[in-house]
Design a protein around this nucleic acid. Structure first.
Length: 544
DNA sequence: TCAAATGGCGCC
DNA sequence: AAAGGGCGCCATTTGA
């Protein structure tokens, strides 16, 4: 593994510390000691090889992840080739907004001059030194931003480690579930018997053949049967009085299992009893993680039975209860909502505080407020929220107005949302001219409202992601003191650690402590709580 | 014919 | 209870 160039930095943060040129893994191992922070271009590019070689590090500064956050604040998105961005900044040129570039692992030291013609070659160490100094300068004196960058860098380490370790996955249990639902595994290219049977029932109910996998065909069939529907989404179909509806809904459900998490998924993703998705920290504009491969963030609840701890171990499943409304209470400073958020079941408290004890109404209303619902029950319930929590509602309304007029908003620690694109600006520009047609006005309105919903949600979702990154990185650090403990899954506001039986209670306590620490760091002086309720289980399905 | 767009649905 | 935010993935459809 030659060619990696890392720079060691002293605890004092002196970037001019000794240089290390790593020629081999064995050579690197000598350099890895505790209490070092490594500076490197990207954990995603370097760390997988180290982890595979049995090397773990405690801390790092990840130039790529940091640069993405810093560039977001300059309105640059789409992850330009990192070296190009650093080089442009070094030369005082505008940073290229390279949306179409293929986002491979961001590589500072790859031979980019061969890929991107016309660029001068640069010394990687010089580039690294410049990048570090430049980033430090841009972060200087912004404690929130420094916290975000530290948490993001640590997330980069956790992501690589979790991808390497993988989520325990019992293939036999998964196979049994599939057989129960769909019948035996069909030959390649064939439908399982259960789907074929349902398809026949659907044909029979309509009186003519219909392909239930085709939305076009299915909608035409229902229209032919006298139901003037716009789409075939299941919540539309479920209200129709037609004999085809039950088998269609069941077909959709099972076809989803088959195509998304069927035998092909098992072959590709769960060999060896582990599911190894690739985690991409901060890859969602809001700062949430994304994953690549296997749909790791959409594991159906019904499949959680297949996630079982190794012998002698337990799973510690911890999630932050109703994180987003608590975050809204914190960032808005709404005293009434903060009082409600003192309750472990926030929605129940909300229900008792203006929704006549109706928890589901309270929940719908709050979600609607954060997502920008306009119509229906949720829209009507917004009035109650405005009356009870005017400060919180004004906060999200302000964010929405900012988005509608083309502005940007920030998460609590300072991640910026993308500015509107050229198409958006053009459409709004045209639609607001004196001589605009009705269609142009409607289009401009639509674009404005859509973006308002986006920025409204961004401030909440992004701040929740900030909190979660701090939580995760703190827990990762603390968990290193627990022998045999590994983080194995992370999903927005929920994580799973696999821990030796005897350490399960300790690890569970650590998830709680890390949540309290995250609250104190991200929302200092705020009275809100961000409770975490860890469950110690053998099987993920038993955690809820 | 093939790549991009769409519809749909799983998770938060 | 409603169909509002963010994603990834699959099968089908569209259109160049």
């Amino acid at each position: 593994m030659p060619g990696y160039q890392l720079q060691e930095v002293t605890e004092s943060g002196n970037a001019a510390g000794p240089r290390v040129t790593v020629e081999t893994m064995a050579g690197l191992a000598e350099w890895v000691t505790r209490d070092q922070r490594w500076l490197w271009d990207s954990a995603a590019a370097i760390y997988p090889a180290l982890v595979a070689a049995g090397i773990r590090i405690d801390r790092c500064h990840d130039i790529a992840l940091t640069e993405r956050i810093l560039l977001s604040r300059q309105g640059v998105f789409g992850l330009p080739v990192l070296a190009a961005a650093v080089r442009a900044r070094a030369m005082g040129e505008p940073v290229p907004d390279d949306r179409d570039d293929v986002p491979g692992p961001p590589a500072l030291f790859e031979a980019e001059s061969t890929r991107r013609t016309g660029q001068p070659d640069v010394d990687p160490i010089d580039t690294l030194q410049f990048a570090i100094a430049d980033q430090r300068r841009r972060i200087a004196n912004d404690r929130a931003l420094a916290l975000l960058v530290a948490a993001e860098s640590a997330s980069g380490l956790a992501a690589v480690e979790m991808g390497f370790v993988g989520l325990p996955w019992r293939v036999d249990i998964h196979q049994d579930l599939l057989t129960d639902l769909l019948g035996p595994r069909p030959p390649a290219g064939h439908r399982p018997v259960r789907l074929a049977t349902l398809s026949q029932e659907i044909d029979h109910a309509f009186g003519f053949p219909v392909n239930p996998d085709s939305a076009v065909d299915l909608r035409a069939a229902f229209r032919r049967a006298g139901f003037d529907i716009e789409s075939t989404r299941s919540w539309v179909l479920k209200d129709l009085d037609h004999p085809a509806v039950p088998p269609v809904l069941r077909y959709k459900e099972l076809a989803r299992v088959h195509s998304a998490n069927g035998w092909n998924w098992l072959d590709e993703w769960a060999r060896g009893g582990r599911f190894h998705p690739e985690y991409l920290p901060g890859a969602v504009v809001s700062g949430r993680w994304a994953t690549r491969g296997g749909g790791a963030l959409q594991i159906p609840r019904g499949l959680r039975k297949a996630v079982v701890a190794d012998p002698g171990h337990r799973l510690v499943v911890a999630d932050a209860a109703q994180l987003e409304p608590r975050v809204l209470a914190a960032i808005s400073g709404d005293a009434a909502l903060q009082r409600v958020s003192a309750d472990v079941d926030l929605y129940s408290a909300l229900a008792d505080d203006g929704f006549g004890g109706d928890r589901s109404h309270a929940k719908v209303a709050m979600l609607g407020a954060m997502y920008g619902a306009t119509s229906g029950e949720s829209g009507r319930l917004l009035g109650t929220l405005r009356q009870r929590y005017p400060v919180a509602m004004a906060y999200v309304e302000t964010a929405a107005r900012e988005g509608e007029r083309g502005g940007v908003v920030h998460s609590v620690l300072g991640r910026a949302c993308p500015p509107p694109g050229a198409g958006w600006r053009a459409a709004v520009e045209i639609g607001t001219q004196q001589d605009a047609t009705d269609a142009e006005r409607r289009r401009a309105d639509q674009f404005g409202r859509d973006r308002g919903r986006f920025t409204r949600n961004f401030v909440v979702q992004g701040s929740a992601a900030d909190w979660a990154a701090v939580w995760l990185s703190g827990l990762r650090r603390d968990l290193r003191a627990v022998p045999g403990a590994e983080l194995v899954f992370f999903q927005h506001d929920e994580l799973i650690a696999q821990v030796p039986v005897e350490s399960a209670e300790t690890a569970a306590d650590l998830t709680v402590a890390a949540a309290m620490a995250a609250k104190a760091l991200v929302f200092p002086r705020s009275p809100v709580t961000t409770p975490v309720l860890p469950k110690i289980v053998d099987c993920y399905a038993d955690a809820k």
